[in-house]
Simulated assay, not measured.
Amino acid sequence: MIIQPTSFAALAWAGAASGSAAESWRIGTVLAARPLGINPDGMMVLQIGALAVEAEPPRGQLPSQFQVRVLTLGAQPQLEVIAPHTPEPAIQVALRERLPQQNGYAPLLATLDALAQRPALRQLPAYLRPALALLEHGVRTPAEVTRGEGLKEAISRSGLFLESQLAQSQVDMAVLSQEDWKAAMLRLASLLDDYLPARRPTAGDNETPPPLQQRGLQPQPRLGLPPELLNDDVDALLGRLHGEVHAALARVEVAQLEATTVPAWMIEIPLQGDAGRDILQIQLQHTADADGGSAWTLGFALDLPATGPLQGELQLRDLRLSVRLWAERADTVHRLEHQFGALRQKLAATGLILDQLSCQQGLPQASSPHSAILLKAMA
């Protein structure tokens, strides 16, 4: 059963954080919980540990007592409901392990850029250099992802579908191991584990973000390296890369685990841009209606130096298409709107019926309908 708390009813989190109540709210801690009743606003009040929170009344009957496990802390702590006398699902165990380890691709791509510019890179062991080159080979170009077949290939090789493709009887293992982003990260992570045996990836801090599906689409800007790493200390860069490749692996594995619980896919594709690398984030969802119809929704987010943060959503139902775009910069909105005439002509040539085509300044509020297995308390 899923419960979504909306606020704290009895104690403000800021006040509780300085008292003994917060001491028990540590990541991994299991807390006792019980329903206290319905308040005048129609919200259910739950006692969780020493705190009381409000939540939308659940569809089913809650037991008089149950337990929750703390997944993350911070301003919006996340708790996982533990069904009484029920073994914890393997997916939830795997998610809890990987969530504190995950991080986006931007730090990894910045470190790859820095390593590629270091003459001392040629001094690395011969077996390590091809693994770095293979990972760089997995970074797609704009020319590839702006073609239908190229985008399809980039999604297929994003790492999200690696294991399902390995299970196919006709798959070419050699090609897949060289073309898939996750396969390339796994190879590099294994070699770095051997090259830097004293270093192991560590979990993140208490501000662990939720899974991607719960955060929704978010444009991700490029990151630079700290000045102290912009020198010829290749071992320092490799040590940084070691942690970042493990964090990126946890990121894609969290997305894979989420895809088993919700009818949607969150895909991230590294792109080779001008003087740096960027990240294209795609959310793909298929929905079916009671009358037998179906629709596809494709959302995307991108943050390019030349355009600033961008976001878009395409909804396709039969032959009817709606396109909504958002851009943070006013000049980017004008540039996109200038292309609308040509886009309408291309869509008409395909036989699609364009119901909506718009571009607004400002980004939409990040949201997602998926909160499948987490109980989220918000201060």
Results as ranks from 00 to 15, higher is better:
Pro5Thr: 05
Ser7Leu: 08
Ser7Val: 09
Ala10Tyr: 09
Ala10Asn: 10
Ala14Pro: 10
Ala14Glu: 15
Ser24Leu: 15
Trp25Met: 14
Trp25Glu: 05
Gly28Pro: 03
Ala32Arg: 09
Arg34Asn: 10
Gly42Gln: 02
Val53Met: 01
Val68Leu: 08
Pro77Tyr: 05
Pro89Arg: 01
Ala90Gly: 07
Arg98Thr: 09
Arg98Gln: 10
Ala116Asp: 15
Gln123Ser: 14
Ala126Cys: 12
Tyr127Lys: 09
Leu134Glu: 14
Glu136Leu: 04
Arg140Pro: 07
Pro142Met: 10
Pro142Leu: 09
Gly148Asn: 09
Leu151Ile: 03
Arg157Asp: 13
Gln165Pro: 05
Gln168Val: 10
Gln170Trp: 15
Arg187Asn: 05
Ala189Asn: 06
Ala189Ile: 01
Ser190Gln: 13
Leu196Cys: 00
Pro210Phe: 06
Gln213Phe: 09
Gln214Phe: 08
Arg215Pro: 04
Arg215Met: 03
Gly216Cys: 06
Arg222Ile: 11
Gly224Arg: 05
Leu230Glu: 15
Asp232Tyr: 12
Asp235Gln: 13
Arg240Trp: 14
His242Ala: 03
Ala248Ser: 07
Arg251Pro: 00
Thr261Trp: 15
Val262Cys: 10
Val262Gln: 15
Met266Lys: 08
Glu268His: 13
Ile269Glu: 07
Ile269His: 08
Asp274Thr: 14
Ile279Thr: 15
Ile282Ala: 02
His286Cys: 03
Thr287Trp: 14
Asp291Ser: 12
Phe300Gln: 10
Pro309Thr: 00
Pro309Ile: 11
Arg329Asn: 13
Thr332Gly: 15
His338Pro: 00
Gln339Val: 02
Phe340Asn: 01
Phe340Thr: 07
Gly341Asn: 12
Lys346Tyr: 00
Gln356Arg: 06
Cys359His: 00
Leu363Ile: 02
His370Arg: 09
Ser371Lys: 09
Ala372Asp: 13
